[in-house]
Amino acid sequence: MNRWLLLAVLSLVAHTAHATSIYAGQARAAAVCSQCHGIRTPSNDSVFPTLAGRDADYLKTALEQYRDKTRKSDIMNSIAGSLTDDDIANVAAYYAKLKP
């Protein structure tokens, strides 16, 4: 029984490690998101929300909604449209891990 549990945990860890890459997320965030949202914080003078430290699942859902246009924003619909599933997972994992 314990062996099965260990195996399950291990496979979950392995799966997570494979699915998201903080480093890939960092590169994508620097190229796509940080222009407006900053890395740790956006400009005080801007209207853009902070992404650093936000819940990864929330960021992932929001980006998916922007991409499939169930959530409307001219600028975000077009930017999220350029992201793959992996990009979204990586960027969400990266920003979630940062301290604002």
Binding site: A31, Q35, C36, S43, D45, S46, V47, F48, I75
Partner: peptide, 14 residues
């Protein structure tokens, strides 16, 4: 949207 890799910021919302 600003210009990537320069100091040009996005004026969207401003």
């Amino acid at each position: 949207a600003g210009s990537f890799d320069t100091l040009m910021p996005p004026f969207y919302g401003k």
